[in-house]
Amino acid sequence: MGLADFFRKKGSSSVAKDRLKLVLVSDRAGCSPEIMEQIKNDIIHVISKYIEIDLEGLDIKITQTESETNNGAVPALFASIPIKDMKSAKK
């Protein structure tokens, strides 16, 4: 066993597997980039009513998450939305 093997903890096959699992989730969901863009715009529209958000840092993607009922991974819409400022709630 060489030094290279020692440092390479993760074989490239598990990298391939992980990447494939992710890409197939969005493939199977049939979510085209256009639809994702629309979802993104709608979310911005709704949240902006209450909170000032950082549009530059906004990230929305379809990914996988472990299901709570423990029957494996399920697709999930993951949204990372940095907040700039909380607007004071209107009474």
Binding site: D5, K10, G11, S12, S13, A16, K17, L20, K21
Partner: peptide, 15 residues
Amino acid sequence: VKRGDMMSSDDVCEI
């Protein structure tokens, strides 16, 4: 497959 640089048939089947 043995050295972890190719997905096995089981991996592909699972995916």
